[in-house]
């Protein structure tokens, strides 16, 4: 029940923000609505459904999934790793950035460092090679030059 109320509030706020964001869009032409038309319909949809959700929250059917606080930290670490990857990949290249990401994530999942290293060394260069040779997708080239 509580989580539905939070969701409803977020949706309501989102709808209002969306409506405000469309305020400075150019107006309608003579024979048709302007670019704000669809976004405003959606804003109203969000507002109405947000309010409905706040007023009539449904009790969630199944139990909330068990999650240990330790695992939340792991999720945060993974997201941080992804963000870091997207920032450094263009500079260091895929091999280093992707290698760090994979190695770190392996360790995070409780693999021994040897297994992690093995997975990284096998996975990352082979992904790079397959993508750049067979699939014509050149992943960021960086310091290592391939």
């Amino acid at each position: 029940m509580k989580s539905d109320r939070i969701l409803g509030t977020l949706v309501l706020i989102g709808g209002i923000a969306l409506y405000i964001a469309t305020m400075d869009f150019p107006g309608a032409a003579s024979n048709r609505p302007g670019p704000a038309f669809l976004p405003r319909i959606l804003a109203v949809l969000f507002m109405v459904s947000g309010i409905l959700l706040i007023l009539h929250p449904k009790p969630t059917g199944n139990e909330k999934e068990e999650s240990q606080p330790g695992n939340r930290v792991k999720v945060a670490a993974m997201i941080a790793g992804l963000v870091l990857y997207s920032m450094i990949a263009d500079i260091t290249g895929f091999l280093i950035a992707g290698g760090c990401l994979t190695f770190g994530f392996c360790l995070l999942l409780g693999n021994s460092w040897r297994v992690s290293l093995l997975v990284t060394v096998v996975l990352v260069p082979s992904v790079y090679t397959i993508f750049s040779t067979v699939l014509g997708v050149v992943l960021p080239v960086g310091w290592l030059g391939w």
Binding site: T92, I96, S132, V138, V141, W143, L144, G145, W146
Partner: peptide
Amino acid sequence: ILIGCGPGREESADQFPSRAIQ
């Protein structure tokens, strides 16, 4: 290793191109 082969890999025009172009 990375620092070693990182910077300073400027290539001259007569070596161009040495890898894939997009």
